[in-house]
């Protein structure tokens, strides 16, 4: 494990967030982010870890181009990239079937494509014609992830995508996300699960409590395929020794 300071090739996307302040109903301001610089290379897997409510989701939304009311800039404009997003809640259209929900986000030219393989890979074949209201939260999360990945995007933005999945399903889906990253998709993922971050990420970005900023970036040089349980445990213990907040994770 070593501190990250890799300039590398030109990044796929780079955000400089000097400040992000939310306006409360009573008119006062609540500063969520103060000074984050984050760059993702093509095919890089970055995990954001930080305490609850520290501004991780805000950072994701800014990077995905969903929040433009902040001080700073994102280069290039997120609108010029293909971005697949899996939100913290699945956000499926309740009046469209599972398959329709996935198909709808595809570009017009790919709308008619056969989705059977993708749907099967996410274990959704038996549910393709069902409406989201009939699914458990875990299944709905799978659909949300399948929708984001169906796009084959330049950048996958994932906000705690494996929460409330059973262990086997979560492991399967982690493998698919890792495969996407190996195939050249950049991934930015928020998670509370330190083991998960250590299993998947090329780089872990530790965030401070609100107003959040980057505390440290940790590069994980060992290839994903070679990371086993003992290695993950050793890395987690080393991280927890430096960041007491992670001891529970």
């Amino acid at each position: 494990m070593k501190p990250m300071s890799d300039a590398g090739a030109s990044p796929l996307i780079e955000a400089v967030i000097r400040a992000k302040t939310y306006r409360r109903p009573d008119g006062t301001g609540m500063e969520a982010v103060r000074g984050i610089t984050l760059a993702l290379r093509r095919g890089e897997f970055v995990c954001l870890i930080g305490p609850s409510g520290c501004g991780k989701t805000t950072t994701l939304r800014i990077l995905a181009g969903l929040d433009r009311a902040f001080e700073g800039e994102v280069r290039p404009d997120p609108a010029t990239l293909s971005i697949g997003v899996a939100f913290q809640e699945p956000r499926l259209l309740p009046w469209r079937t599972v398959e329709e929900n996935i198909r709808l986000v595809l570009p017009k030219a790919r709308r008619a494509m056969d989705l059977a393989r993708l749907i099967a890979r996410f274990g959704l074949s038996a549910h393709a014609a069902r409406y989201p209201g009939e699914l458990s939260l875990g299944l709905a999360r799978r659909v949300s992830l399948a929708r984001a990945m169906a796009l084959e995007p330049d950048l996958l933005v994932l906000d705690e995508p494996f929460v409330s999945l059973d262990a086997q399903a979560a492991a399967d889906l982690r493998r698919y996300v890792a495969l996407a990253a190996d195939g050249g998709t950049s991934v930015l993922m928020v998670t509370h699960n330190v083991r998960e971050a250590l299993e998947l990420a090329d780089r872990v970005v530790m965030l401070a409590p609100r107003p959040t900023h980057v505390v440290e970036e940790v590069c994980l040089a060992l290839p994903r395929a070679m990371r086993d349980g003992p290695w993950i445990e050793a890395e987690r213990a080393a991280l927890a020794a430096r960041f007491p907040l992670l001891r529970e994770g």
Partner: peptide, 24 residues
């Protein structure tokens, strides 16, 4: 507003937003 943001995130066309998100 969550579905509205989802439609923005996936850049649905104005017609798709109307047909699949707003009208339903």
């Amino acid at each position: 507003p969550e579905l509205d943001e989802m439609a923005s995130a996936f850049r649905l066309s104005p017609m798709d937003r109307l047909r699949h998100v707003l009208i339903p």
